[in-house]
Simulated scan of single mutants.
Amino acid sequence: MSARTGVLLLAVLWGVGVASAQQPGFTWDVPRVLESVAVPGVMRADGIPVKLRSVKSAEKPQVILQHLVRTFEAAGFYIPPDKHRTQRFAEPQLTALDTDRLISYTFVLQPNPDGTTTVLLGEANLGMARREQSAFAPVFPGGTDLMQSEMEGARTMTYLAEAEPEKVRDFYLSALGSAGYSEDSSGTWRRGSEELRVAVRPVKVGRVAVIIMRRTVVEDVMSPDVREGPRPASPKARADER
């Protein structure tokens, strides 16, 4: 699973909550950290603001799992019993809830070929959620598990469909063409300043994941002369000025 895919899917795991300003927040404690990358800004997944962070550790997944479980327990977080957990990834994962501040915390562990472990960390607060608008692009008939997210001015919509990739692509060829979009390149559609990028990824035979990103493209309206700046005067013009 790629880091980008992990970030998008991680958002659906988190619970809800309203933060309390009177209580200190939880601090992640991952053992043997080699490097850490925070995703800039705040991402919104289905209207919920989420904070994301990726950490690379020299420790093994099982050791990190046990350590983070102990930190959750020490913080007094609620950890659902196994039968109530939703396992969305093959990699080890866990979500715990701070019942005082009503903020949930999730981690996903991804073992790397070099023996290190990538740890995806996230927290979300439904108390600051805003109502999501309807889907901004057509959805293939029968599409399920629709999720929308927003980050740095771009909106992303993902869902699953029971169909072959070619059939889904044909659907968008017709639906977006009818809506006034034109295809600039394979999977990239434009309508005025609006751009849609449509990706169809096979999940298994007869099932695909559809990822659509929408952004606004600022057109360069300046003329070539303005962009290049004033041109130097010709020798004759300089002589006339003298």
Score class of each variant (00 low, 15 high):
residue 1 M to T: 15
residue 2 S to G: 07
residue 6 G to N: 05
residue 10 L to I: 01
residue 13 L to S: 13
residue 17 G to Q: 07
residue 22 Q to M: 10
residue 23 Q to K: 11
residue 25 G to K: 04
residue 30 V to N: 02
residue 31 P to L: 14
residue 40 P to S: 03
residue 42 V to Y: 03
residue 43 M to C: 01
residue 46 D to H: 00
residue 47 G to Q: 08
residue 48 I to E: 07
residue 48 I to S: 04
residue 51 K to D: 05
residue 52 L to C: 06
residue 62 Q to E: 15
residue 77 F to Y: 12
residue 83 K to H: 10
residue 84 H to C: 11
residue 85 R to K: 14
residue 86 T to Y: 09
residue 90 A to V: 11
residue 93 Q to C: 05
residue 96 A to F: 03
residue 100 D to V: 06
residue 111 P to S: 09
residue 113 P to M: 04
residue 114 D to S: 04
residue 120 L to K: 01
residue 120 L to R: 11
residue 131 R to S: 10
residue 134 S to I: 08
residue 143 G to P: 14
residue 150 E to P: 00
residue 151 M to Q: 13
residue 158 T to S: 07
residue 165 P to A: 15
residue 168 V to A: 01
residue 169 R to F: 02
residue 170 D to V: 12
residue 172 Y to W: 02
residue 173 L to F: 05
residue 180 G to F: 04
residue 182 S to V: 13
residue 183 E to S: 11
residue 186 S to H: 02
residue 189 W to A: 11
residue 193 S to A: 10
residue 194 E to N: 08
residue 195 E to Y: 03
residue 200 V to K: 00
residue 201 R to C: 01
residue 202 P to R: 11
residue 212 I to F: 07
residue 213 M to K: 02
residue 215 R to H: 12
residue 217 V to N: 04
residue 217 V to D: 02
residue 222 M to H: 02
residue 222 M to E: 13
residue 223 S to Y: 00
residue 227 R to H: 06
residue 228 E to W: 13
residue 229 G to T: 09
residue 229 G to A: 03
residue 230 P to C: 03
residue 230 P to D: 09
residue 230 P to L: 10
residue 232 P to T: 03
residue 236 K to H: 13
residue 242 R to N: 11
residue 242 R to S: 14
